[in-house]
């Protein structure tokens, strides 16, 4: 059995009277994990502890089997892409990355080669010799991403990596993040834009008010919420007939008629799933198909944080 790349156990962190992280326990293995939560959920504090920037107040955090705080052995293997615009505007991208890679202990030649490779990987090969001052917001974001990758880390932590990127760049970066996960690196992507995370991974850790409110794949989390109402869209040429039958079923809480569809919110979805084929075959109601519409991350997140 392989140990998780990052292990957080009973972690609590606070700033003065503000409790930022409250008894969090979580494991992050190889592949991409989305770290989700609204502002103030404790994501950034958790990231700082995992990246070795803050020492745990209570609890333990290990990265590759070692405590990360003030630990150069761990820091060599961690790459952090900060949310803030943390690059030197006066220097070129290649100069900036070469410098930051040298701080990992690489000789100048090796650092330069690695920096160049990372910039090519994030799609900045044409602009790497220009001063960062002239870069767009999206290009600066790519520089931040490249500096997290240049030293070849095993653990990559990306804080809002798609901020400020245009659609094409988003697609490229999403593909890059997935590729990093496929290479076996432990990639933690923090975001509050749910569909972005959904495009990168199905595995998420959701936080709210400093606590972990869900941990697993989106589908697993949704299944665990079986006591919650589920919204199901039934596609039909006769929405009124379907609505008339559905309202008779136990657990149906709300019906919404739409053009060639009925939106059913029910606390007993199994009853509906069993009834739908019967309506089609015996009652002659034209049911074309059905699908749950709130297994999306957005819906799960809404359930958990409200």
């Amino acid at each position: 059995m392989t140990l998780p790349s990052i292990r957080v156990q009973d972690l609590s962190m606070w700033y003065g009277d503000v409790l930022a992280v409250n008894e969090v326990t979580a494991d992050f293995g190889p592949g991409v994990t989305g770290l989700l939560g609204p502002n103030g959920a404790g994501k950034s504090t958790l990231i700082k502890v995992v990246a070795g920037m803050l020492a745990p107040r209570i609890g333990t955090v290990t990265v590759m089997g070692e405590a990360p705080f003030d630990n150069p052995r761990v820091m060599r293997r961690v790459g952090l892409c900060p949310e803030q615009d943390a690059v030197y505007a006066g220097a070129t991208a290649i100069e900036t990355l070469t410098y930051l890679t040298r701080l990992h202990g690489y000789p100048k030649g090796d650092a330069s080669a690695r920096a160049r490779e990372a910039l090519v990987r994030v799609g900045l090969e044409a602009a790497m010799d220009r001063p960062v001052a002239g870069y767009s917001k999206g290009m600066r974001q790519r520089v931040r991403l490249a500096q997290a990758l240049a030293h070849g880390p095993d653990v990559v932590i990306l804080d809002e990596p798609l901020n400020g990127l245009d659609p094409v760049a988003r697609r490229d970066i999403v593909a890059l993040v997935r590729a990093l996960g496929d290479e076996g690196r432990c990639v933690v992507v923090s975001s509050h834009v749910l569909h972005e995370v959904e495009a990168m991974t199905r595995r998420v850790l959701m936080m709210a008010h400093g606590r972990v409110v869900a941990d697993g794949t989106i589908e697993e989390i949704r299944r665990d919420l079986s006591d919650r109402p589920l919204a199901i869209e039934v596609t039909t040429a006769d929405p009124r007939a379907v609505a008339r039958l559905a309202v008779e079923l136990p657990g149906v809480l709300r019906l919404e008629l739409r053009d060639r569809a009925v939106h059913v919110v029910t606390s007993k979805p199994l009853e509906l799933f069993q009834a739908l084929p019967a309506w089609r075959s015996t009652a002659g109601v034209p049911v074309d198909g059905w699908r749950p519409v709130d297994e999306s991350l957005e819906a799960v997140f809404r359930y958990l944080t409200t």
């Binding site: 990246a51 070795g52 920037m53 003030d70 150069p72 052995r73 820091m75 060599r76 961690v78 790459g79 952090l80 900060p82 803030q84 615009d85 943390a86 690059v87 030197y88 505007a89 930051l100 701080l103 990992h104 202990g105 500096q147």
Partner: peptide, 14 residues
């Protein structure tokens, strides 16, 4: 000002 400190804090320097 440029918030570059995290770039140092996550690197193996003291």
């Amino acid at each position: 000002r440029t918030r570059a400190l995290p770039l140092y804090l996550v690197r193996p320097i003291t």
